[in-house]
Nucleic acid binder design. Structure first.
Lengths: 148, 148
DNA sequence: CAAGAATCATTCGAGCTGTGAACGATTCTG
DNA sequence: CAGAATCGTTCACAGCTCGAATGATTCTTG
């Protein structure tokens, strides 16, 4: 009945990280979909929530995506009245993106969804193991040059 | 110079799992690309390496993908002489897929690549933490119904 | 100050993945 | 034996991301 299929691949750290990562990403995407956004949008909002308004180039660099992708993400977030996009008066090539109040609310809702997902994940682990996992992933992430 | 950007999202377990997962997946894909295969191919080979020849439906079910995707994966692996695809004499609708010797070699090479990637990952963690991470991810995976 | 190089945002086309719907062949059911 | 169900296959399609080309603006440099 159950598929107990452990093979040489599944015993690999890379495999477990990869499959769990894509599973968790899918679950997070499903959780924020009712809010009208996708994970990349949330990432953009989260970056904007720290510090001053940023140009799209900065966003692209921090998020490790191509600038043209930031355009469409920002378009859609602007459509939702979640961000404001104004020309930078000091350099009129740039756009200064900043969160609106609605954007802050939207981000908060997305973070709540992430927190709930975290709770579900750590529920099967226990508090101590949950924090241990956070710490280990943090080491790996910073080692890889990722935020965290 | 460095982007020290920790925001409310990056402190989330879901975010770290997601980003690390996609990073590791990309690295694994790059590692096996010279062998002419992609991660999904390796997954198929790995499933075939355990137990008897399987039908494509079984593969699709275990790998959690749609049967039509198994068709193209099997096509390409057959092209590489990594698997054999013969009609099941007992049910001539089915195909029985099995590894060839070359397929076993190919899988071994892919597993070696995965092991090397694992070594790189755990290098920054130390042996004890590396095993702890494996264990925690294993719990999460089996909790989620994934192989592992 | 003028001309060319560089930078920013935008648009557009392309590639790659994976999906779902239709189809023919085969087997099961009653 | 007739119809339903199953297997594999094909094909068109949507989603996501990237890269090149473009226009606007600013910087550089002679």
């Amino acid at each position: 009945m159950d598929d107990v299929n452990a093979n040489a691949l599944t015993g690999t750290l890379a495999f477990r990280l990869g499959t769990l990562g894509s599973l968790v990403s899918a679950r997070f995407a499903a959780a924020v979909a009712p809010l009208g956004v996708k994970p990349k949008h949330v990432g953009l909002l989260a970056v904007l929530s720290t510090g001053a308004p940023a140009s799209q180039q900065e966003l692209a660099r921090v998020m490790k995506v191509v600038p043209s992708l930031v355009v469409s993400l920002a378009d859609q977030l602007e459509e939702l009245d979640a961000i404001e996009r104004v020309r930078d008066p000091e350099d009129r090539r740039r756009h200064r993106l900043s969160l609106t109040d609605g954007g802050r609310d939207l981000l908060a809702a997305c973070l709540a969804a992430a927190a709930e997902l975290d709770a579900e994940l750590t529920a099967s682990l226990g508090a101590a193991d949950g924090e241990a996992l956070m710490r280990l992933l943090g080491v790996l992430a910073s080692e890889a040059g990722l935020p965290g």
